[in-house]
Design a protein around this nucleic acid. Structure first.
Length: 437
DNA sequence: TAGGCCATCTGGTCCT
DNA sequence: AGGACCAGATGGCCTA
């Protein structure tokens, strides 16, 4: 039985998941005959046998669930047992450290032995054996799925050969051991230099992406909603920021107080449904009240007074991206009403401006939204949100009777929509704070 | 389980 | 030569 053993130490994924990841060793099993015998997102762990080939892949990884952990440990134990009993030959690549294993006293200690063994396999002499195994497998029709490291090295060797040829260095017929030795040294040196360069480039790229993510995180904190529990996706953060800037500039240019509903609609332009829900939650709004197709359910007096300063401004100056233009035909596919008309200049111009450069969104309108998440603006308390939401429903049914508009910014809308003014005050206070900061 | 989102690796291109 | 930037590929988790 021949078992391929390959080990790499990777970095734990960053991002929200890294908040509580710990170092664990993850083992994955691969079957060369069928390629990677694994489904997406789920490793297939032995029955160690099907075709006799396994590729065990320990990764420094984020915490995995206990059953999975046990699963991997079982697989590791089985592989180690076979290694120790000499049941197979193999080779290892890119062995860096097994410190992660040592942190877990329950993991098989024999992997330390594996480490030494595989490092030994990486000598030039042993690599020939390894390659021999590969050739044998290829003859047998097996899918020899080498890891990227080996592929890289082989490719690099080819490049080196090419470079030598291209440099005008004549191929000598003199195959003296001295010359061969020099060549091997040169190849090894070049290979090492390439590896170092690649690793440095990877590290730089990682840092660059981390910087980008940090900037994105900063942006998340200044756009209208920020939730500790539901993180805005990258793309929606950018969309929301763009919408927010546009909406604010429209507000500044207008002498009239903006209409809240249209303001929120502008904010949610092109956002995904979860993000739209999040924005609604942050503003303590019922999303159904500002989704145009739902607005028609609001009493008629609401429609009649929902003129918007946004509608006075003819253009949405930025080209709509391919991810979704809020085409009025999609938004208002049922029947027109005054709100449609108010929005029309806003989106109409968008299409006029962008149809030549940007594809229009042809998809169906998102289904009605619902506030069912655990979010609110800077919220900590779900109960508080539930209470407010219940109140908002009450206000909505009562036509907001008796609710005082405390701030002129929302004067035109607070009378008509289920919004809690104290929450809106907190919303604006937040942004004043952000702007003043 | 498919799709969304994400992090990382990698090679290509451009610039200094 | 090396760094920055970019896009494609890959593989992982999460959620509906």
């Amino acid at each position: 039985m021949v078992v391929f053993f390959s080990a790499t130490i990777g970095e734990a994924p960053r991002g929200p998941l890294n908040l509580n990841w710990k170092r664990h060793v993850k083992l994955e099993a691969f079957c060369p005959r069928h390629g990677m015998c694994r489904r997406k997102g789920r490793a297939m762990i032995p029955p160690l046998s099907t075709h006799g080939f396994y590729k065990v892949h320990p990764l420094v990884h984020y915490t995995i669930s206990q059953p999975q952990h046990q699963y991997y440990k079982t697989a590791a134990s089985e592989v180690c047992r076979q290694i120790e009993s000499g049941l197979f030959k193999g080779y290892g690549t890119l062995i860096k450290t097994y410190s992660a294993l040592k942190e877990d006293s329950t993991m098989p200690v024999s992997l330390q032995y594996v480490s030494k063994w595989t490092e030994g396999c990486r000598t030039t002499q042993n690599m020939e054996t390894v390659n021999g195994v590969h050739k044998t497998m290829s003859k047998d029709g097996d899918n020899d799925d080498e890891d990227g490291f080996n592929r890289m090295e082989e490719r690099n060797d080819d490049e080196e050969q090419g470079e030598e040829g291209g440099s005008g260095e004549e191929e000598s017929l003199d195959d003296s051991p001295k010359r061969i030795g020099t060549k091997i040294k040169k190849i090894t040196k070049t290979r090492q230099r390439f590896k170092v360069r690649r690793m440095k480039a990877n590290a730089r790229e990682r840092n660059r992406m981390h910087g980008l993510n940090d900037a994105l995180e900063s942006l998340r904190k200044v756009v209208p909603c920020y939730s500790n529990t539901q993180k805005l996706s990258k793309i929606d953060t950018l969309r929301l920021a763009k919408n927010y800037i546009w909406a604010l500039s429209e507000t500044l240019q207008s002498d009239e107080s903006p209409d809240l509903m249209l303001f929120v609609q502008a904010l949610c332009h092109g956002l995904s449904q979860p993000t739209t829900n999040l924005v609604a939650g942050c503003l303590q709004l019922n999303p159904r009240t500002f989704l145009p197709e739902q607005v028609q359910d609001i009493p008629s007096q609401v429609h009649q007074t929902s003129t918007a300063s946004f509608s006075l401004h003819p253009s949405y100056p930025y080209p709509s991206p391919p991810y979704g233009t809020m085409d009025s035909s999609h938004i208002h596919h049922s029947k027109p009403h005054p709100v449609d008309n108010a929005l029309e200049p806003f989106f109409e111009t968008t299409f006029t401006d962008c149809t030549s450069t940007s594809p229009r969104f042809e998809g169906p309108l998102s289904p009605p939204l619902s506030v069912n998440g655990n979010f609110s603006y800077k919220h900590e308390s779900t109960a508080e949100f539930d209470k407010n939401y219940a109140l908002s429903i009450q206000y909505a049914t009562q036509g907001m009777a008796g609710v005082q508009c405390l701030h002129p910014f929302y004067a035109s809308s607070s009378k008509h929509f289920d919004i809690l003014m104290d929450n809106m005050m907190s919303f604006e206070t937040h942004h004043e704070r952000k702007l003043n900061a």
